[in-house]
Design a protein around this nucleic acid. Structure first.
Lengths: 353, 353
DNA sequence: AGAGGCTTTGCACACGTGTGCAAAGACGCC
DNA sequence: GGCGTCTTTGCACACGTGTGCAAAGCCTCT
């Protein structure tokens, strides 16, 4: 009696376990485990009875315990900075959806700065994550080696890895192609003095967009008239425009490495130089952020297919070839030009809105 | 010899475990465990030797196994919808930071719609999360009961729980106070026909902001001149403004339940009615989204202290009183008015930018 | 009816860690 | 030197689940 009472008191503090269900359904604990494992060998009638008993006592398998011996946690680590940046916010949302569609869940680490990535990644790794998605942060060679040792697939989204050490799989927008699209557009609209506004130097996204742009211009017989750096921010765009538009040979078009800087350029052009967009200056951005569609801007921009990006990242995770090795696989998602009104339109084209 | 070789082969596929470290350091496995537990009883010299050995073999404790018998996973479930909404994106970023500061990590579930919340929450719960933060989704009474049974603290951010069943702790901005701030501002600026643009009916955030607004107006001897609903979206704001501004007794000020709708109202007022903001119409938003600061809008708005919101949510999680019970504790974070140029300024006040 | 094959079930071990308990060792005091 | 106290260490069990293996049950075919 006393023993029973003590037992009851202890039970009350514990979770409902598979043993409770087994007792309730009159089967062994192994049968309960099998009832919750899709392909397992259980008689349909037994499974039904067990599931009913489980529902009655409010049982759900403990994912932690399950992970411990299946060696699959169902968790994917995600390292990301500046979620407040609309592009990364959309990416995270799409990534979450893509993971959930496969029964996975993202364990998110917000990196205050790129240096913090290593510690966070180590923390994520201690949860035996089934994979890691690193967005907007460098991957140090040290941590990459650890992932390789743990046989944990790593996917970099829109970033290139540290040159040294094992390479990780890479998923990203086709920045080169996007840059070329803009070059073609500006050339077709008859611009002659195109400028480029970079984000942060030595960033793969900014670099690739620039290379694609200049290559595209060259193919059309044009050269870059000016170049500035705007740190990927609105304020940076304002400042860069100040320098860019004060030049004697003012550019007649600016391609910005992201939308936020493009909005800054437009505002500076209007308020500080009294220019009309796009009559006096064409401005093109990158990302197709929500603000780009606002009536006051109607920014022509290059849209990334965020959903496809997320799908590819998850697919790369499941592909064993994604685990760090010598030859790093790459997935490149095509970009799409969104024609609005911040850039002069070539003959015969119509804006999206 | 053969046995040893087979053993070695199996080891190669396994993770580095505490037993490996114990062997390397010449101590028992228990000592290794204690070396990694801050307050545990180990001789300093022994701990040093063990940590050195651990570093040498590349050992990090398995968080899953640890969670299994400490009953603390170090994971906090976060249910959130529409991360793409800048306010929730900032919230998630702040939440991640606040959790990490306490050694916790957010396991994020993206709810495609409020109905999906229950399944996702159940999934999160199976990972024995130490707590759950629900943002932007209702909490059904069924799942609330399950959390209570599992003794898992639940915090609702900016949402009220289902009226029935156990209540969860609630953290949110002081929406009533925010609404009153706007009422006072508009009254002080001499407006006589204030309108309100609601987000989604029966949403606690929209309702509370409206109540604070109308109460504040009443205190100043004013009444609501008109009221519309805009679904919290830019497009909804455009449409609502269409109806609002076509009225014979056109309002001279509109308070919108969030910034996105406010931007829609401004754009509709300018492009479809040729109004000047703020000469012909004052517009005020809520949230202080990044777009609100853009030069083309300079939206006067009510800023929520997102960092404080996140801090409070984490604090509420750690407070045992936050676990579902009869009396639900509430945390209310004060709001701050950000004066820009989309609303007429009272005498003697100066805009923020 | 009996043999053979297939399905279903339970036992027992494994996953990697934390921790109560007791034993062993170190140290100071009389 | 002996005793008591405090620190340090190891044993062994617990956490909750999955799964290989063998036993048992069932069906079919001869």
């Amino acid at each position: 009696m006393d023993q029973d009472q003590a037992d009851r008191a202890r039970r009350a503090r514990r979770w409902v376990t598979s043993a409770d269900v087994a007792r309730a359904a009159g089967v062994s604990r192994a049968a309960v485990s099998r009832a919750f494992t899709p392909g397992a060998s259980v008689a349909p009638e037994t499974r039904r009875r067990i599931l009913a008993a489980a529902k009655a006592v409010g049982y759900r398998p403990n994912a932690l315990a399950r992970s411990l011996n299946t060696r699959r946690s169902g968790i994917v680590g995600v390292v990301i900075t500046e979620i407040a940046n609309p592009f990364y916010a959309r990416l995270l949302e799409a990534l979450g959806g893509a993971l959930q569609a496969r029964g996975l869940l993202p364990l998110v680490a917000v990196a205050p700065d790129p240096q913090a990535t290593d510690d966070l990644l180590a923390h994520l790794l201690s949860y035996q994550v089934d994979g890691v998605v690193v967005a907007s942060a460098m991957l140090s060679s040290g941590i990459a080696a650890r992932c390789a040792a743990a046989r944990t697939p790593v996917v970099l989204v829109d970033r290139r890895a540290d040159a040294k050490g094992p390479q990780a799989a890479l998923v990203g927008a086709d920045n080169l192609g996007g840059g070329r699209l803009v070059a073609d557009l500006l050339a077709a609209a008859g611009h002659s003095r195109p400028a480029f506004l970079a984000g942060i130097e030595a960033t793969s996204t900014s670099d690739e967009r620039e290379r694609g742009f200049t290559q595209g211009l060259a193919a059309q017989g044009l050269v870059l008239a000016a170049r500035e750096v705007g740190r990927f921010t609105y304020a940076g765009g304002l400042e860069a425009a100040q320098r860019l538009l004060a030049r004697a040979d003012r550019p007649d078009a600016v391609f910005c490495a992201n939308d936020e800087m493009a909005l800054g350029v437009i505002d500076a052009a209007r308020t500080r130089f009294g220019l009309d967009i796009p009559r006096d200056l064409s401005v093109v951005g990158f990302d197709d952020t929500p603000s780009a569609g606002l009536a006051a801007y109607r920014l022509t921009t290059v849209a990334q297919d965020v959903a496809a990006l997320a799908q590819a990242a998850v697919a790369a995770l499941e592909d064993p070839a994604a685990s760090p090795r010598r030859a790093a696989p790459q997935w490149r998602i095509p970009c799409r030009l969104v024609l609005r009104r911040s850039a002069r339109l070539p003959e015969g084209t119509v804006p999206a809105d």
